[in-house]
Simulated scan of single mutants.
Amino acid sequence: MRSNQKRTYSYWFYLPAGVIYGVIFMVPTVIAFYFAFTRWTLFESEFIGLDNFRQFFAEQSLRIGLRNTLIYAVVTSGLKVVLGMLLAILLTAPIRSRGFLRSVVFFPVLVSTVAVGITFSVLLQPDFGLVATMLGSVGITSPDWLGDPRTALLSVALVDVWKGVGLATVIYMAGILSISKDYYEAVDVDGGGMWTKFWNVTLPLSRPATFTVILLSLIGGLRSFDLIWTMTGGGPGFSSDVIASIIYKQYQAGFFGLATAGNVVLFILVSLIVFPLFRYFNSREVEA
């Protein structure tokens, strides 16, 4: 009897978190799913079934936005994983000014995304931007980074990597510092070098950090909006439009039901990609 009372009592500690989660996440999610099937304004709504979803998928820019969203998420995630790992290895090594360098790497994470977007919009100007000036000093003509459809999306993605790689580095540093030094000493005894330590010790034992970085970066990349909107507004044309920016344009035009349906589509897309990946990573950790 006492053990049952203790078990029941412990469940009460879940209640505050459950209430907050339900109010902040579950209730708005259910309401959004309902309004996705309506034509609504601030004062009234009309149930129209799947019309919003049909119209959303009929949008000319949707295919481009979906492709751009996937490209943006894959490019930013991949670069954050690679650069985060390399920077973490460097910043956990016994080098001079290590603390200062860690601060420098993490600093962009603390800066407002809108401020970063505005700053790089100026720096990447083809006429008077700092990048164009530096390239011009060595005889290279700077392309229109944000005005050329071929480079606009990639330029924003690289700025996203610059801003977010600090968080990936911190996660990797935590994973690397948690590895026992005994493994590295065993490699030294066997006569292995730096590459052997990285390939056989650091890389496999930092797998949980890699999984975390991939998941966080993918979610952020699939949902990205503020940096893209600040730097390019989805242009030129639809060349840097992502699903989130398409949804925002629908809100601006007053198509609230259509935009809500787009949010539901984005929610489902993120879930279909992230949840299976999360289960796969968990199974890999159990096998390890």
Rank of each mutant, 00 (worst) to 15 (best):
N4K: 15
I179E: 11
I24P: 00
K80G: 06
K249M: 10
F281V: 03
V156Y: 00
V116N: 02
L50E: 12
R54N: 12
L266V: 03
L154D: 07
I24C: 04
L101E: 12
V19P: 00
D160P: 07
F256D: 10
W162A: 03
A259D: 09
L154V: 06
V109W: 13
P108H: 02
L277P: 00
V274Q: 06
P94K: 15
G235E: 10
G147P: 04
Y11D: 06
L135I: 08
L277A: 03
S77P: 05
G65A: 11
V161W: 04
T202M: 08
L90H: 10
F100N: 09
A132V: 02
F225H: 03
I171Y: 09
D182N: 06
I273G: 01
T133M: 15
S142N: 06
F225Y: 08
L167N: 05
A186K: 11
G220F: 08
L86T: 04
I48H: 04
P126S: 06
R98M: 15
I118N: 04
I118L: 14
Y183W: 03
S178F: 13
L215N: 01
N263F: 05
L130A: 06
G65N: 05
T202E: 06
F211C: 02
Q60V: 14
A261H: 05
Y72G: 00
Y251W: 11
G234L: 10
V274W: 07
F255D: 15
N282I: 13
I179M: 03
G262S: 04
T113M: 08
F25E: 07
S77Q: 10
E285Q: 12
P276S: 09
E44W: 14
I247F: 06
F37K: 00
D188T: 07
A58G: 10
L203A: 09
V82D: 05
Y9M: 15
K163F: 02
M173H: 04
P108I: 04
L218R: 02
E59K: 10
F238H: 09
G136F: 08
G220T: 10
S121L: 14
V23T: 07
G147R: 09
L205S: 01
F275N: 08
G136D: 10
R2D: 15
G233S: 06
V161Q: 03
K6L: 14
S137P: 01
V213W: 07
F100L: 13
E287W: 08
F107P: 01
V114H: 04
R207E: 11
L87D: 03
L50G: 06
F35I: 00
I64N: 12
R98K: 13
V114L: 11
M1I: 13
R39K: 09
S103Y: 10
